[in-house]
């Protein structure tokens, strides 16, 4: 073999860059302000939420607008469990995984015969029903007031400080993020992507397509509920807004802006949008308007998200080197919304 090829060099560079980034994120408490640590914690939790969501959306091609249901469910499990009742933190995590998975399976079954915008409406309906429940069952949820006083110390082994809490969040997000990564590369995970590309072909290969659709929602729901537990702990609070449809829309935007076709898409999207939100809040409180505008601009100028843009550049660069035509790019994030992504 010849010496180091440019591709190999680029891969090495990318690995080094990722390592440096990882070290910087872990070491952030040594140079960042406590405000910035708070922002990073938020990004980490939303990144996990986005990864869970993208199992259904980016990989499975099913546009859910109801993922706040799982997220809020996790929040209320730790809220009701530790503030109103006296449930142990391990039990809280197990309950979040199990109930998130069960709710995911139910949503998966409900949307089995639907595609595109109908998936969106059905999932939205489920989340809105849960939101209504949280709003009305005051005896359990304290309704509109929500449940305050969730202890951050509960999830931190040892002494709970801002820094140890941040590291606990990072560790939990990394563990569950790694599980999602593992899942997506498994036969079942690849079959979920294949179902997006061609359900009829997958069935003809001997796979029961419905089982993989339900499986996608189940795993997604379980991990999203864990993210919800972390979010409620981070805010020391859970309320109906954790279940609101705007939360579902926001996680969809994390995936779209970052690049739904890529595993790291929601992580990049969460980092970009949370940073934008913090920055914009300096001079306006119309965050939703800014979010909407961001969505429009993304669709217009980089329909495959930030990583899609990077990937295009990389392909173009390689094609120039090899003197090839540029290969067609990967599926648009918008395909999932319109249901045109191989659903025909």
């Amino acid at each position: 073999m010849s010496a180091v090829t440019p591709e190999a060099r680029n891969r090495l560079l990318l690995r080094v860059a990722l390592l440096v980034l990882a070290i910087a994120v872990v070491a952030a408490p040594y140079f960042a302000s406590s405000f910035q640590i708070g922002v990073l914690s938020r990004i980490a939790v939303f990144a996990l939420f986005g990864l869970a969501f993208n199992i259904v959306f980016g990989a499975g091609g099913m546009p859910s607008l109801g993922h706040a249901a799982f997220f809020g469910l996790g929040g209320y499990i730790i809220g009701i469990g530790t503030v109103r009742l006296d449930v142990g933190i391990i039990t809280v995590f197990v309950l979040a995984l199990v109930l998130g998975a069960v709710l995911g399976a139910i949503v998966g079954v409900l949307t089995l015969r639907s595609h595109g915008v109908y998936v969106l409406l059905l999932t939205l309906a489920v989340a809105q029903a849960l939101w209504g429940l949280a709003f009305q069952q005051v005896r359990w949820t304290r309704g509109d007031n929500g449940i305050a006083g969730i202890e951050r110390g509960l999830i931190v082994p040892g002494e709970a400080t801002l820094v140890t809490f941040y590291w606990t969040i990072l560790a939990l997000v990394s563990i569950f993020g790694a599980l999602v990564w593992w899942f997506q590369r498994s036969p079942a995970g690849v079959a979920i992507v294949a179902h997006r590309e061609s359900a009829s072909r997958l069935a003809a290969l001997g796979y029961r397509v419905s089982a993989y659709r339900i499986g996608a929602f189940t795993v997604s729901g379980a991990v999203a509920a864990i993210a919800g537990v972390l979010y409620a702990t981070l805010n020391r609070f859970v309320g109906p807004e954790n279940l609101a449809w705007t939360m579902s829309a926001e996680v969809m935007l994390f995936a779209i802006v970052g690049g739904a076709a890529f595993f790291a898409g929601p992580i990049v999207g969460a980092a970009a949008l949370v940073t934008l939100e913090v920055w914009v809040s300096g001079f306006t409180d119309r965050w939703l308007a800014v979010l909407g505008l961001t969505y429009i601009l993304t669709m217009l100028f980089m329909p495959q998200g930030i990583l899609g843009l990077v990937d295009d550049r990389r392909r173009a660069w390689r094609a120039r080197r090899e003197g090839h035509e540029i290969a067609p790019t990967s599926a648009n994030a918008s395909d999932a919304l319109t249901g045109t992504g191989g659903m025909s």
Binding site: W182, S186, P187, A188, G189, G206, Y207
Partner: peptide, 10 residues
């Protein structure tokens, strides 16, 4: 293999 969800396909 078809039902495995914890081990990479390759």
């Amino acid at each position: 293999v078809r039902r495995t969800f914890w081990r990479p396909l390759h």
